[in-house]
């Protein structure tokens, strides 16, 4: 009973997160300007992190937790660096 509930909820949640990643990917590819692309990349990082967490629940292993943490860190660093690049034209001055 509980296994059926969990498997169904996990499948629906993963499909929703995939659709969200599709929306972010559209904004990343077709974004009219550079800042829209950076925003899409940031949202894509968050969606990928959440998808990894649901994968971790599904396969019952905490290995995915570390991957999600690394992706969250990478998303912060890359978005901050890209915003700095958009502002100044250089990342490290």
């Amino acid at each position: 009973m509980s296994a059926i509930i969990l498997v169904l909820a996990l499948a629906v949640a993963q499909l929703m997160l995939l659709a969200a990643m599709g929306c972010c990917l559209y904004r990343l590819i077709r974004g009219p300007r550079a800042q829209d692309r950076v925003l899409g990349l940031d949202a894509l990082y968050v969606c990928a992190m959440l998808l990894l967490l649901t994968l971790g629940i599904r396969s019952d292993s905490t290995v995915f937790f570390e991957m999600a943490l690394v992706i969250a860190l990478l998303g912060f660093v890359s978005t901050a660096a890209l915003a700095k690049f958009l502002m100044r034209g250089e990342v490290i001055e």
């Binding site: 509930i5 969990l6 169904l8 909820a9 996990l10 629906v12 949640a13 993963q14 929703m16 997160l17 659709a19 969200a20 990643m21 929306c23 972010c24 559209y26 904004r27 925003l39 899409g40 949202a43 968050v46 969606c47 959440l50 649901t54 629940i57």
Partner: peptide, 20 residues
């Protein structure tokens, strides 16, 4: 667990539809 999973996933989807 299913409630919180669906809440989180649907809110993420709503946010990304807004981004679109």
């Amino acid at each position: 667990i299913a409630f919180f999973l669906l809440l989180g996933a649907s809110l993420t989807l709503l946010g990304c539809i807004g981004l679109l």
